[in-house]
Amino acid sequence: MITVNTESFPWEEGLTITRLIKRKRFTFRMLVVKIDGAVVKKPAWPETKIPDGADVQVIHLMSGG
């Protein structure tokens, strides 16, 4: 299990950031991703594997409005 934006989310072996974003249906493009407080830049998302128990923040920056 991992935490995504303070809520529990099931972890799976090999879960990458790109895969997580797809599973969460986070389709907004202006995202900041942090794993245990460390920013992971967008080019690294497809390769970055999220460890079990990680605290993940997927911060949607404001747009629109």
Binding site: N5, T6, E7, F26, F28, Q57, V58, I59, H60, L61, M62, G64, G65
Partner: peptide, 18 residues
């Protein structure tokens, strides 16, 4: 009118302002 404040992502999605 949304031009005064648009906080939905911060609040509902990011859970940054609990």
């Amino acid at each position: 009118q949304h031009d005064e404040a648009w906080l939905i992502f911060m609040d509902m999605v990011n859970k940054q302002i609990p």
